[in-house]
């Protein structure tokens, strides 16, 4: 608490707002995958910059937390740095880039490579929480579809992918079914991350502009939608990381010159950095060091 700017209430939000968000989180945990409406507040950052995640983080945070923020896996991008600074200032919490040391991790579009454990909370920033929204624009209708468990349209969409492309072409925000009941948008994480969602940590999802909170308790059954003859495939670039040599991590493709040169690197900067510190080297790592 020493570092907290006393001009702010702890973690920025007023207490009544936090209570409202906390009640929504509890109901979200009680009905996994169901989107709980909440009265999202104006935050000192624009919609699209993680206002939903920030409000959820503010509601769960305690002064003793160690906070980590990633944007597409990276701790050092603008969005991640500014949210980390926001909570350093308004909550006085310690921050870290180490996945294993963090107690609350706010993420935009990735799940860390390192397995999360009990005692950790993963907070997702969600742009469009409704998985059926691009199939059915009406909120009244999508709410009815969830109530009636009427998810045929989603399977038609995935089937049309197969008919047109020979495979399900959805590569991120790949829809999942939670505990055999609600179809849920996992936020725009790559489908590579979907199998990790059955984890020991608590997962909370905040959509600020769309005013929805949803949640997954630990060990909740999360199944990516698929067909018997086209099973779910959590694919990634068929390449090891060029910096740390990891073959099991999700990779970003980076263009490195004007001649079409490119390299693949881990999107999870902490995972890649820790591996390099432990002596692992990829194909292009030596050049970089020279």
């Amino acid at each position: 608490m020493d570092g907290q700017d006393q001009a702010y209430n702890f973690a920025y939000l007023d207490e009544q707002t936090k209570r409202m968000i906390r009640r929504a989180i509890l109901k979200g945990l009680a009905v996994p995958g169901y989107q709980v409406p909440f009265a999202s507040r104006e935050m000192p950052m624009p919609y699209g910059w993680g206002t939903g995640g920030v409000q959820v983080s503010a509601a769960v945070m305690v002064p003793e937390d160690r906070f980590k923020v990633i944007d597409q896996g990276a701790d050092d991008t603008t969005n991640a740095v500014s949210i980390r600074k926001f909570f350093e200032k308004t909550a006085g919490v310690a921050v870290t880039e180490r996945t294993g040391e963090a107690t609350v991790i706010q993420t935009r579009h990735r799940i860390p490579e390192e397995e999360l454990g009990e005692g950790q909370v993963l907070v997702y920033q969600v742009p469009i929480p409704e998985p059926l929204r691009f199939l059915e624009p009406s909120e009244v209708e999508t709410r009815k579809m969830h109530a009636l468990e009427e998810y045929g349209l989603m399977h038609v969409k995935l089937y049309e992918d197969i008919a047109r492309h020979g495979a399900i072409s959805t590569a991120y925000a790949y829809p999942v079914k939670v505990e055999g009941r609600y179809v849920m948008d996992p936020s725009p994480i790559p489908k590579f991350d979907n199998p990790k969602m059955e984890m020991a940590a608590v997962q909370l999802f905040g959509a600020g502009r769309e005013q929805r909170i949803y949640a997954l308790p630990p060990y909740t059954k999360v199944v990516s939608l698929d067909f018997e003859d086209h099973p779910f495939d959590p694919s990634k670039a068929d390449h090891p990381c060029d910096l740390c040599g990891a073959e099991d991590s999700y990779l970003d493709e980076v263009i490195v010159d004007d001649a079409g040169g490119r390299m693949f690197v881990c999107s999870d900067t902490d995972y890649c950095g820790t591996r390099q510190a432990n002596g692992h080297r990829g194909a292009l790592a030596a050049e970089d060091a020279a």
Partner: peptide
């Protein structure tokens, strides 16, 4: 209230 909620949330989640 932050400490209390975190404990209550862990109870509801587990």
């Amino acid at each position: 209230s932050a400490h209390a909620f975190r404990a209550a949330m862990e109870c509801m989640a587990r």
